[in-house]
């Protein structure tokens, strides 16, 4: 009698577990980010919210930003490319809505500036070093090598 009861209990438990497991619709399913959301994020993070203090459209909770994000989603679903969507907003809000100056014409200066400065500075450094070496040779009349030895502290 006890054995039958045990078997019955075990079977019941298993059955309950089985029912519970199969009745839950979210058991093994993982929600994923919608692809349109991923693409929208990549575009919206590089657009500046027109009414916020420097935030990107993606990070902003402003009403206009939400509208822009929704518009981006709709356009992505309609098949537009990211560059078309960016051009759409640029045509309406101007260069301000881009997070960095466009890489054309007038704005090459700021994009290449740092690189050019490093080159100029590096050139200056090299020139100064070489010129001091020549000065040492000229003044002392010794070979540069000997002077290096003497100057070493």
């Amino acid at each position: 009698m006890m054995r039958v009861a045990n078997v019955f209990a075990v079977v019941t438990v298993f059955a309950l577990v089985a029912i519970d497991g199969s009745s839950s619709p979210h058991c093994a399913e993982l929600q994923r980010e919608q692809p349109v959301e991923t693409e929208m994020r990549e575009i919206a993070q590089n657009l500046r919210c027109p009414v916020c203090q420097g935030q990107s459209v993606y990070d902003s909770n402003a009403d206009l930003a939400q509208q822009m994000k929704q518009t981006i989603r709709e356009k992505l679903n309609a098949g537009e490319t990211p560059s078309q969507i960016v051009a759409f907003f640029k045509a309406r809000y101007g260069n301000y809505v881009l997070m960095a100056p466009p890489r054309g014409g007038l704005h090459w200066g700021i994009w290449l500036g740092p690189f050019v400065l490093v080159l100029i500075g590096g050139g200056l450094v090299v020139w100064r070093v070489l010129r001091s070496r020549q000065q040492i040779i000229a003044v002392a009349g010794h070979s540069a090598h000997d002077d290096m030895e003497r100057l070493e502290l």
Binding site: R48, G54, G94, N95, A100, P101, P102, H107, I110, P114
Partner: peptide
């Protein structure tokens, strides 16, 4: 690097005064 950050901060101001256009210089730059 310091000059770059300075220019990045001043550039929108300079462009606005010279051309009237407003550009942004932000994280992507």
């Amino acid at each position: 690097a310091a000059i770059t950050v300075l220019i990045g901060t001043l550039y929108p101001l300079a462009v606005e005064i010279v051309t009237g256009d407003r550009v942004s210089v932000a994280a992507p730059y």
